[in-house]
Nucleic acid binder design. Structure first.
Lengths: 345, 345
DNA sequence: TTCATTCATGCACACGTGTGCACTATCAGC
DNA sequence: GCTGATAGTGCACACGTGTGCATGAATGAA
């Protein structure tokens, strides 16, 4: 049976309001009464009803977190960061995966609204404008991690992709590569754009031309797609000597694709990834990549949302709060001085 | 502003109860009224309050999911399976990571109780007896995936680890290996026990003795630990010719450790993993492993909990409902006929 | 016309918690 | 002993929704 404050009140011989106040340590109640009631509550195993409290206080103590997919190692590290901070502050997480499916996005927005979540973290997913708008109309703080959509959000946390991309490119160019290809991910939105821009700017600054076919985008960010993309690059008249991949998932596939084509990494072709997911250090060869502070990104996002909850809707800071976090280049063994690529097939 | 059924009632010129009934398509309300009210509700952007509904109906439409860690690829695939089914049935997921930390377990149990989750899925984590008991005292269905604790739960879904372990071992033994080691994970509870049992039984059945030091357990299921364990195995007077790892994370580390010791896999030593996480097919060489139907496990667990919700506490099936799912062996390139292991160092 | 029947709707109350206000008891100061 | 202040507690009501029951209107049969 579920215990309510009324049950406690009956046992303690007081009104239920006294119990309510005692448990919230209101100064209106005497110390002895408070302690007596607390003891009884503990004995009876009382747990307040979040529903009732939320109804009355308009606070659900729940954060909504929207990702495109839970089983992507990049997201799950961010989730872990959010979870840490949220748990510590007494908040629970609703996690929902949109799978980039409009139907599911719709149902997610509905659910979050129905549960009156106190804040939402949209995690690196290009939410459709329609649903995004719905979410915004509902006046709660929304923090966007790695904003992928075209719109600007007022509160946003992202990694400095342009800088990261430049660093990776400077590394490759510094090694002497001139024929560098970019393997992107078509559905990622802004992030991909930034990394692509970094690629182009670096190539231009170094005076290297981007040959036709050197920019290639996949439909999914899986190793399979990365592997398949290698066929494209190898079919070019002048295959690249280095491939900069949008993320580690694609890079891991690229490693396999190159190996299957009989090419050696990095002797015949260098490969660089992005994100530094756990497995990037266990590939053969270990992957050169750019380390995004994933956990920190998650933690900061959670702190930002929770911080905004302390303000009322109207007096939330007008100016956008955008945090840009820096990462660092990790040079491992998948990149080296360029040799001529031996063309296969 | 948040719209309530009273606002709709005012606009429609009816009582709020009529609105409540209309929106729930009660037969008591005429078709025209129902449609008119529905239209107004849609126009006003009404979203029912889950808190209020939950207070009245004693149903929160929320499932609690407890894992030890979100960013473990094995768990996240299961989570994806649960999420699929839950979303489809209109349920939301509270996900909380215990990190095997009693403090966090405590806070998780509290949160789940306060939110009156309708059911709980405990996912492959050895929950402490104390908190586990608390959870059970609260009369909601609990489904345990890959039960790791000593207690028996009435509703449980697990993979047939004993069978899987035997299959892996038969494969290794069939290849001709006699000196086979088992690399386990100390904190996993039952699962590790079953796999270890399968290992021992298979060795005995084949008439192979298990040499001292061939059974070794790590403190964490990370590649780093797997890598470190290799030093132990190589320090034995007769190093194994094959290593059967508790899971792919350890196996991936083992591959690296062997490689660093100058040994070739599988020529000098075969390695087999377990679980078939995504990355196991991208290692060098690709890992022989046992494919657990992770997504299906998650889906079945969700179906089981949701199914139990249709019954009242007292008329839930008395006899335990335990589903045992079968997986299948995936032979890749990390296992082959045994050669003599060349001892290094 | 009257009564019974059916259909549609409203009223009152409940779920568990929190808050403004009123009430009582106690005590100091005169 | 009276007044006023203060501390401690209870009452009434609210949050948004759902349900049993009563009410009222409309219909059909006698």
């Amino acid at each position: 049976m579920v215990i309510t404050i009324k049950d406690i009140a009956r046992k303690a011989g007081v009104a239920h309001t006294t119990v309510s106040r005692a448990l919230r340590s209101s100064p209106l109640i005497s110390t002895q009464t408070t302690e007596r009631i607390r003891k009884i509550a503990a004995e009876m195993g009382y747990q307040p009803s979040a529903a009732a409290r939320s109804l009355k206080t308009n606070r659900s103590q729940v954060l909504g977190v929207i990702v495109s997919s839970i089983d992507d190692p990049f997201f799950s590290e961010i989730l872990q960061g959010i979870d840490d901070v949220a748990q510590q502050r007494g908040y629970s997480m609703f996690i929902a995966a949109s799978q980039r499916d409009p139907q599911r996005e719709r149902s997610i927005v509905r659910t979050m609204r129905e549960h009156r979540v106190d804040g939402v973290i949209v995690c690196s997913t290009p939410f459709s404008p329609e649903h995004s708008k719905q979410l915004r109309s509902y006046e709660i703080p929304i923090v966007v991690i790695n904003n992928q959509s075209a719109e600007d959000y007022r509160y946003s946390i992202h990694h400095d992709d342009l800088d990261g991309s430049r660093q990776v490119m400077l590394h490759l160019i510094g090694l002497g590569h001139r024929r560098i290809a970019y393997l992107g991910y078509a559905h990622s939105g802004r992030t991909n754009q930034k990394r692509l821009t970094g690629y182009r700017e670096a190539m231009q600054a170094a005076g290297h031309s981007i040959q036709t076919g050197y920019e290639f985008e996949t439909d999914d960010s899986t190793p399979q797609e990365g592997r398949a993309a290698i066929q494209h690059f190898l079919s070019l008249s002048q295959p690249p000597t280095a491939i900069f991949c949008y993320n580690d998932m694609l890079a891991i596939g690229a490693l396999l694709g190159l190996q299957e084509a009989g090419l050696h990494v990095p002797d015949n072709c260098s490969v660089a990834g992005f994100d530094n997911i756990t497995f990037s250090s266990y590939t053969t060869p270990p992957l050169t990549t750019f380390d995004q502070p994933k956990r920190v990104i998650g933690e900061q996002a959670a702190r930002l949302v929770l911080g905004l909850l302390d303000h009322e809707t109207q007096d939330r800071p007008e100016e956008p709060r955008i945090q840009i976090l820096q990462g660092s280049l990790l040079v491992r063994a998948s990149t080296s001085l360029p040799n001529e690529v031996q063309k296969c097939n």
